[in-house]
């Protein structure tokens, strides 16, 4: 193992891929952190998805990393471009919590669960198996995937740390 691990940061509504070190995104609330991994080539990718569907986008230039339905295919393409083998790719995800509970909340209020649902649909459409998830709840998460092992490390303020 290399001591000075490279950490690739993924911002909000952002995605990235890598072949060594860690890929990290911080402060996932209702957003979903979705990772794809090829255990053979040891290639990993992560997307920080903010909204479920690009259909509601009102912006001119679409940021494809922001929406579940566009981020997942893009992340897959980026991995394949690095040489990943499609049939080996597996997915994990975390986040999608409901940060604030309101009585009679509108649709915006349950954006977390909707993000999770959309990510699952996008994975299904691409035939990528979801092998682990840590979603829901009402707390924030920071996640890191190790490119060498594919292990997803999850940290939260309220629930401590866990590995998927």
């Amino acid at each position: 193992m290399i001591d000075e691990q490279t950490i690739i940061k993924v911002g909000m509504a952002d995605l990235n891929v890598g072949s060594q070190g860690l890929i990290r995104t911080t402060g996932l609330g209702s957003c979903v952190g979705l990772t794809l991994y090829d255990p053979g080539k040891k290639l990993a990718g992560m997307a920080h998805v903010m909204l479920p569907s690009s259909e509601i986008a009102r912006e001119g230039q679409l940021n494809i990393a922001k929406f579940a339905d566009t981020a997942v295919p893009e992340l897959l393409n980026r991995l394949l471009a690095l040489g990943a083998v499609r049939s080996r790719i597996v997915a994990k995800m975390a986040g999608g919590s409901q940060m604030f509970a309101f009585a009679g909340g509108s649709d915006t209020m349950r954006i977390g669960p909707r993000n999770v649902e959309s990510c699952k649909l996008a994975l299904e459409a691409l035939n990528i198996p979801l092998i682990a998830e840590d979603t829901g709840g009402n707390y924030g998460r920071t996640i890191e995937i190790a490119c060498s092992t594919g292990v997803l490390y999850i940290r939260s303020v309220q629930k401590g740390a866990k590995e998927l």
Binding site: M12, G27, L28, G29, S30, C31, L51, G140, R141, S156
Partner: peptide
Amino acid sequence: DMAGAILGYGLL
């Protein structure tokens, strides 16, 4: 909680 998780909500 984490600031990112909280403020992210306000940015939807």
